[in-house]
Design a protein around this nucleic acid. Structure first.
Lengths: 216, 216
DNA sequence: AACGGCTTCCGAACGATGTTCGGTCACCCA
DNA sequence: TGGGTGACCGAACATCGTTCGGAAGCCGTT
């Protein structure tokens, strides 16, 4: 068949199609052959634009991370900065829950993530947190977000809930909330974040450096 | 070759070997063929004792979860109960970091996890927490543990750190702590847990039911 | 205007994976 | 003593990610 008059593929189109498949049918359903079929093309053609399957997934991951906001450190105090970072981080993952298991493999290595980690660290230090605390707070917040995205209630319980309800009395009430799993997810995350920040606020008063004086 | 005089395989031996492989060489290195080779046996023989590869991994996961302790609710107040649960949960995962990505796929569905979720929920309600808060606190704590286990297992930063150090000034100090990554992980988790519990303690005073009166 | 090289897609193949199926033979109970 | 069940083997299947040689449209050069 040879070269087509107008290019069919591009790195962007491939990654977009990959994300669509993952969003719709899950990470396990993404294969290079499926991807090619979806794009009306043969498998080997993909490798002209993309190095490996992992390459595709990494690009998709980076794209998703672009939506994470760290600008809150400029428009408010450190608490507002952390909170808005955490919420937009979680929102970005929640928008594509199926890819989270892949994301979690090495988020720190990703370019976009690193840029944000730097901003967070800087924002915290600027607010008087000792550098070591800044590191810990950044990591802790990430734990919350990743943990929330990974073990979200929504994926936890599936259809055959009845079995458990009978066997574990204390959980019966909790299970009745199924279907509203998304709400529990959000509320749990919010509770964890607020309690964490409450605790940090008290700690900040004890360990933070005094604000920089105005002039020399 | 036919039937051997003494059985070579058993479900237990297979799962133990699987865990050994995963611990030593990672989740990606676990294949049925490798597993068979390690046990001095042919691949198809495994399927006499085990339904699928996922079956093996699930059994391994359950085994690991057995080490999680929820007895803290009987030996102390709710705060002690949550803290000791969270710590033993994290310790169990940290003992086998390579399997965490698999674990995180559906921990709530697992038998052992459910039994513990029930105990935690009961312990919290018994301490006066409204049932809904008990659910949220259980989920939040799990977020912390899973998130901590996930993003620490990933190794976060790897060898070619130099690149990032130059590019992201605020992270330079944080990177110098590499090699002590394990310490940062533990400290971050402890900080998050303590701050979270501090926040909850204040909340408990506002929303908890009064303790049950002694007699009628 | 003809040609040569680069780009882009195709077809077939490779090795590895999870799983299945029919065969073989030792053990144990009748 | 014989037959059935249990435990291992060998070969095969479909699927996966990836590679490689070939075909053919496009563009710049001569």
């Amino acid at each position: 068949m040879g070269r087509p008059t107008k290019p069919i593929l591009s790195r962007g189109r491939i990654c977009a199609a990959a994300l669509a498949i993952v969003d719709q049918d899950g990470l396990a359903e993404l294969s290079m052959r499926r991807l090619a079929r979806e794009l009306g093309v043969q498998v080997s053609s993909l490798y002209e634009h993309v190095k490996t399957k992992d390459d595709v997934l990494n690009e998709v991951a980076n794209t998703i991370m672009e939506d994470v906001e760290v600008s809150g450190f400029e428009t408010g105090d450190w608490r507002h900065g952390v909170a808005s970072w955490a919420r937009s981080y979680r929102a970005a993952l929640a928008a594509h829950p199926q890819i989270v298991p892949f994301l979690a493999y090495g988020p720190a290595r990703r370019e976009a993530s690193l840029r944000r980690a730097d901003a967070v660290h800087g924002g915290l230090v600027g607010a008087g947190w000792p550098p070591r605390y800044a590191t810990l707070i950044g990591a802790s917040t990430k734990y919350l977000v990743i943990g929330s995205a990974m073990s979200s209630f929504a994926g936890g319980f599936d259809d055959d809930v009845q079995v458990y309800v009978e066997r574990y009395p204390h959980l019966a009430g909790a299970h009745r909330l199924r279907g509203r799993a998304g709400v529990i997810d959000r509320d749990s995350f919010e509770l964890a974040l607020e309690m964490f920040l409450d605790g940090l606020t008290a700690l900040h008063a004890r360990v933070a450096a005094p604000p920089e004086p105005a002039g020399p």
